[in-house]
Amino acid sequence: MLILHCPFCGPRDHSEFLYGGDARRTRPAPDDADGARWHDYVFLRDNPRGTHVEHWQHIHGCRAWLTVTRDTVTHEILAVTAARPAAAAGDGR
């Protein structure tokens, strides 16, 4: 059982969350028409042995999307922040 420390809700079982995949992809701008950039964003992933930064959504909680740094070998959770940039910077709640 991974325990994720949701910044809003505190430590929770991973079964309260929905996994959202690699958080390090760069999403092209909405009006970006470049097929190669969209292809890379949608299909290409690294599969690191070690630290992985990924998205999880706290669906059985505050429903916030979170950015989680997890070690894929030890399952240690190294960091959890809100995915939304403004919230992560501590700007209001």
Binding site: G20, A23, W65
Partner: peptide
């Protein structure tokens, strides 16, 4: 219903904050 809602929330929080 649930996947669409999660997707919309993802877009608002991650892609287009």
């Amino acid at each position: 219903a649930a996947p669409v809602l999660s997707m919309l929330e993802y877009l608002l929080e991650v892609a287009w904050p």
